[in-house]
């Protein structure tokens, strides 16, 4: 059984419909990448799964249960954690406090402060700094660490590489398989196709709110991706 499954998921913002009948599946232990152009609905999909947006049609199933009616704080307690676009660190909290607040839901597991510092050693050195005083890459590490502190079964990552230097992106992407191997499945949203293809077990391409392509990275041709990404 899939860990996450959306069935004909339809959602949007007020009168604006952003997703149309989206079906995706994430199996236990997988890294799934969602690619697509700006405005294709990638972030909307993550927000709907994290229960920040109402489900207007279809269902979101997590571990077999319908979670369409839950709110975000309940989804976290079930084991769904979102690393939001733009990091969104809490400005009046220090790095360590930002990590600690990630564990607010009280879910037990292998991710504690020590393990996060082990994954991102730079954060240990900056634990007393305010989150907003850090570089973009370090902030992204805090945001990932903060999400891991709730010991999620499913980690949703929105535009991890956005605005970061290539070398920092490498650091962050090296961490993703380690997170998966520790027992957390991932959905990553990326505009950088090459980056996504390298780590993903499965790829979905969104275009104007609809899934236009799906498959294993090795099976997909450049042309097929190009067509799915930009439209015919």
């Amino acid at each position: 059984m899939a860990l996450l499954q959306t069935v004909k998921l339809t959602t949007g913002y007020g009168d604006f419909q952003a997703l149309f009948d989206v079906d995706i599946e994430v199996a236990q232990g997988q890294i799934v990448a969602v690619i697509g152009a700006n405005g294709a609905g990638k972030s909307t999909l993550l927000k709907a799964v994290a229960r920040l947006l109402p489900v207007d049609g279809g269902t979101v199933r997590f571990d077999g249960a319908d979670i369409s009616g839950l709110v975000a704080s309940q989804a976290v307690r079930l084991g769904i954690s979102l690393v939001p676009e733009g990091r969104r660190l809490f400005p009046s909290l220090s790095v360590e406090e930002n990590l600690q607040i990630g564990g607010y839901s009280g879910r037990r597991g292998s991710w504690r402060l020590a393990e996060v510092y082990d994954l991102f050693p730079r954060l240990a050195e900056r634990r007393r700094h305010m989150g907003t005083a850090l570089s973009g890459g370090e902030q992204q590490m805090v945001a990932i660490g903060r999400a891991l502190m709730s010991n999620p079964r499913l980690l949703l990552c929105d535009e991890l590489s956005l605005g970061l230097a290539p070398i920092v992106i490498q650091d962050i992407y090296t961490a993703l398989p380690r997170i998966r191997d520790a027992g957390t499945s991932l959905v990553i949203v990326e505009q950088d196709i090459a980056q996504a293809m390298r780590v993903a077990d499965r790829v979905y391409c969104l275009q104007e709110g609809r899934i236009t392509l799906t498959g294993r990275p090795a099976e997909l041709s450049r042309e097929a991706i190009h067509a799915a990404y930009f439209g015919a």
């Binding site: 949007g12 009168d15 604006f16 419909q17 405005g39 294709a40 609905g41």
Partner: peptide, 10 residues
Amino acid sequence: QSGPPSGQMR
């Protein structure tokens, strides 16, 4: 032709 750029108005 000048419909909404992406997505559709409900």
